[in-house]
Design a protein around this nucleic acid. Sequence first.
DNA 1: CCAATTATTCTCCAAATGAGTATAACCGAC
DNA 2: GTCGGTTATACTCATTTGGAGAATAATTGG
Lengths: 321, 321
Amino acid sequence: MQDKTARATKQPARNDRSQAVNADLIAVVIAVTTGEPRVLTIEQAQALPSGPFELGHRSLQSGLRAWVERQTGHQLGYIEQLYTFADRDRTGDERVQISISYLGLTREEQAERSQTHGWHGWYDYFPWEDHRAGVPSILPDIVVPRLSAWSDDAEDPGIRRDRRQRVAYAFGLDDRDWNEELVLQRYELLYEAALVAEATRGRDNGNPPSIPGRPMIADHRRILATGMARLRTKIKYRPVVFELMPATFTLLQLQRTVEALAGRLVHKPNFRRLIEEQDLVEETGETMSDTGGRPAKRFRFRQTVLVERTAAGTKLPLSRG
Amino acid sequence: MQDKTARATKQPARNDRSQAVNADLIAVVIAVTTGEPRVLTIEQAQALPSGPFELGHRSLQSGLRAWVERQTGHQLGYIEQLYTFADRDRTGDERVQISISYLGLTREEQAERSQTHGWHGWYDYFPWEDHRAGVPSILPDIVVPRLSAWSDDAEDPGIRRDRRQRVAYAFGLDDRDWNEELVLQRYELLYEAALVAEATRGRDNGNPPSIPGRPMIADHRRILATGMARLRTKIKYRPVVFELMPATFTLLQLQRTVEALAGRLVHKPNFRRLIEEQDLVEETGETMSDTGGRPAKRFRFRQTVLVERTAAGTKLPLSRG
DNA sequence: CCAATTATTCTCCAAATGAGTATAACCGAC
DNA sequence: GTCGGTTATACTCATTTGGAGAATAATTGG
């Protein structure tokens, strides 16, 4: 901005440059229970919790924390801003709607049943993202063929080639590897190809049926995808997984949590090596006689690491098999 | 949110949950000329350009792009959202002020002189961030001693130890390495220790003088720090440096740009190896007889890479010497 | 032609990473 | 109690990556 005339007449100039808008917060709150990542939802699992931010908080972050904790009874261990969206379609009136989205991690221990909100596995919304038991059949059977058809649909050969490349890259086709971080790119491709319900909603029909995967209102599934992608990236270089773990845990439990988030398996001995050589955990002294097999040592997260929290995180020694 | 009573009475519920606020955009626009990273500023280099976002754009991003290009005549090659801040102090009235900040990269070729805006080296604002010629003397001479004094000032021994650790980590003291990505952490430590002008502004004085480094209005220097940190991180895994380069360039020019951003030197042969094995560039066929020495081949960025833009970027083969 | 300067290509070595093997400690069936 | 199944834990090995330096090539200016 910095309109010179405006500056000359009024001081301070900041105020006139601002635009009056509506704003709210949207939270992607994640917990992992029994090896499944879950997201906190409202409205019959079709929406992410959202609310106004409240004056009187020092920061957006603290406002969100207070609000989520009051509404859900869940303490948020870690909060991070995701993205700010602007929209005009969402509300009927003239104003622009701004939504500031956050990622929050919690332990979902006190998971009482609630009328207003509930937890749902994030792979219900993104069934093509879970590769822990190998490539999910939905990909070769449904998603990839329909994306290929969409690519071939394009008139322009340049666009055709571009679509094919993007699909191949995002979904790890041909000789490429599956990249678990590309959650958002994949969802956006599916949206662009009108293969998710959100893309065809409200338009006159004549659209082909959507692929499996539970839809959400407005752009909430896209926001969830953003959060998943951010978390899958983050666990590789920041020790945030521990925000999702109970006070003590075995290394296999930790591994299962990481695998649940990443949607793919890791090599057990290497995972162990990685965790230990980074001094992220320490033994409690106790062991745990789990299912069958030799008892596992219990570990706890080393608090010292939190001070240098930017320290090396939890890289993923991915396995190919 | 999701207040059940509210939902029962009014539909859709989204509207009532929203909060009326003022919002504007703040841009960190970066260019690199003659080996110096520069930032686009207004108000005698003391503020980042900012303005309202305009209705009628599909996204915040496109609104920002149009606005910056119209105001400055600079095409933004790359735009990325940085962070959204909320404030109450900034404006006099009741409303909350929201600022959505963006990072933009440009080529600063048509750098005409302008009354309203100008370019300034980002190390003018952060002199302790430039380690290309070794550790800048301001660090051992001024910054570190004053941060140490601040650490020792704390009554509580726990806080004292915590401060010392954070300082040592952020500034690479003891046996630790300098981490060029911690721009924001360093600025926030200096702010917390009241060593930058912004921290003591408006308060009754009695404060020690600030350390060198040009201040900015409001929290603009913090936003700039956020942008610098983001860019220093990003160049290591996304090919964004090329947005700052002219159409053709030598590998040394590319290296100098990366070094200017990172604030530290890289090992020439390894930098070359990295760039070439990733197929990021291709030869134009021409050469350039530069200063003294053997003529260098000219390269251009390979457009193909843009399709798989998420492809491996430009890691930094840092050197110790 | 020589010295200085920059470009370009290689080699070397150490650390990080992917993958597989071997041994230990428990359970339950028999 | 012994055996088979199961998980825990500890090593080993090969390959890749990343930091560092040496060697060679092509200019310019004395």
